[in-house]
Amino acid sequence: MKSKALFLFCAFIFTAMLSRAQVAYGPKDTIRVATTNYNGEIIPWVVIGEVTVIDKRTFKSKEDFDNYRRLRYNVLKVLPYARFAGQRYRQLERDLALTNDKRKQKELIKSCDKEIKDLFNDKIKNLTISQGEILIKLIDRETNNSSFDLVKDLKGNVPAFLMQSVAKIFGHDLKTKYDVDQDMEIEGIIHSVGYYSYQ
């Protein structure tokens, strides 16, 4: 019995030494990093990306938790629309900067307007009032312009006034601006899904 245990122990040691002897280091096994001399000691350092530490959120009541869940749902529902609007607006700005021809600029604006309407017309019509308010804020966040200013710049004063009037009937204000401090709940939700912004 003792000899069997001794044999197994020796076999284990031999196998461990054999596996260790098979480790070979090649030229690609070395990672070069920057170093700093700190009080005579060489310390390697590596630059890493920004890390955001978020504490687990607690709520005072079930009602607060339900309100937060509803807000999160609404933000995540309209965020893709705002992101697309921001990307399309930046593309339109680049296209308009390449031409001085007024007719060509009108065609570009009309094409952009049609593309956005075709893509989102049915979906945006079905948004709730609170989702519409969040969308207006997020468009301002993405483009750094209120929805009213975007319509005014692209279509003129009269269409902007008419759209603002219609929005007011439904309880919206196209001049609403996004304020990070005031809308920090929305900002926190956006950051929690890993999206920051183009700006």
Rank of each mutant, 00 (worst) to 15 (best):
K2E: 11
K2A: 08
L6W: 09
L6C: 06
A11T: 08
I13S: 01
T15H: 08
M17N: 00
L18V: 02
V23Q: 14
V23W: 01
V23A: 03
K28T: 14
T35F: 04
E41A: 14
I42E: 04
I43D: 07
I43Y: 14
V46C: 01
G49F: 01
V51H: 13
I54C: 05
F59Y: 15
E63P: 04
D66K: 08
Y68M: 07
Y68N: 03
R70F: 09
L71V: 09
V75K: 03
V78Q: 03
Y81E: 08
R83I: 03
F84N: 13
R94E: 05
K102F: 13
K102H: 10
K106A: 14
K110Q: 12
S111P: 02
S111F: 11
D113R: 10
K114E: 08
F120P: 00
I124P: 00
I124H: 06
K125A: 10
N126C: 00
K137M: 09
K137D: 02
K137Q: 09
L138D: 04
D140W: 02
R141H: 04
S146I: 01
F148M: 03
L154C: 02
K155M: 11
G156T: 08
V158H: 07
P159G: 07
L162A: 14
S165D: 06
K168M: 13
F170D: 03
T176R: 01
Y178F: 15
D179L: 08
D181R: 15
D183A: 04
G188Q: 02
I189V: 05
I190D: 01
I190G: 02
H191M: 11
H191D: 08
H191R: 15
Y196A: 10
Q199G: 12
